[in-house]
Design a protein around this nucleic acid. Structure first.
Lengths: 117, 117
DNA sequence: TAAATAGTTGAACACTTGTTCAAGTGTATG
DNA sequence: CATACACTTGAACAAGTGTTCAACTATTTA
């Protein structure tokens, strides 16, 4: 009697199973959450966001600072934009980027905390 | 007069350049930080960590709950272990996993906050 | 001691991702 | 109007990732 190939000890505790199944994170929520973290899960994007923590910068400025091509930075900024991690403002030819909200900043700071322990 | 192919407006403001270059996040720090976020940047791992937020569970329990193979879960747990996001405790044949510290929990909660806004 | 159980591991595979390159916007300048 | 500039975009490609499968270890049970 062992459905799903589950371990035996587990199925003895039916109450535990039901409780955990209910508390389980939904498929969509898990996906949304992972997409946000995935966006922070690349060195280039971490550098971009870190640079934008205290300053509003144009694409070219970021590219120069990180010693990367404008194209590469632009691609990454689009990804960050789509996830509402950064916002932008146009001024003539220039496009100025900045962090979209305080959550991003806090997430980065919290990541540093974990890394430094 | 335009080194590195940088935009023209930028190089006018020398003070700004120097200040930002100094504040720039280091290569190693950016990599470490991105590795932590990358670990959280996968739906399966988000589900695993979410499940472990309130409970200590064995590999088989997690696999059953998430309806995935024990092998797949074990592979992901190793990754999370290496990054000190989860810890484990052996008890006979069983291996019980739990979150390694409060930072992980806070990171997840903060991610949810951003996702829900 | 043999079989069953819980978990780990390495190789293989399809799939995803980050950068580059070339071509394309749109705005300002001569 | 033509050129230069700031930036965006799509295609292409190498490098990386997540799951499966089969083989493995270690502990318990018959």
């Amino acid at each position: 009697m062992n459905e799903e190939g589950a371990c035996q000890i587990f199925h003895v505790d039916e109450e535990k199973v039901l409780k955990l199944k209910e508390e389980l994170i939904g498929e969509y929520k898990a996906l949304t959450l992972s997409e946000i973290f995935k966006a922070l899960g690349d060195p280039t994007r971490v550098k971009i966001l870190y640079t934008l923590m205290e300053n509003e910068l144009c694409v070219c400025d970021i590219a120069t600072l990180l010693e990367m091509t404008v194209s590469a930075i632009s691609h990454q900024l689009r990804l960050l934009r789509n996830l509402k991690l950064v916002k932008f403002r146009k001024e003539g030819k220039m496009v100025y980027y900045s962090l979209d909200d305080e959550h991003v900043k806090k997430l980065l700071e919290m990541g540093v905390e974990h890394a430094e322990e």
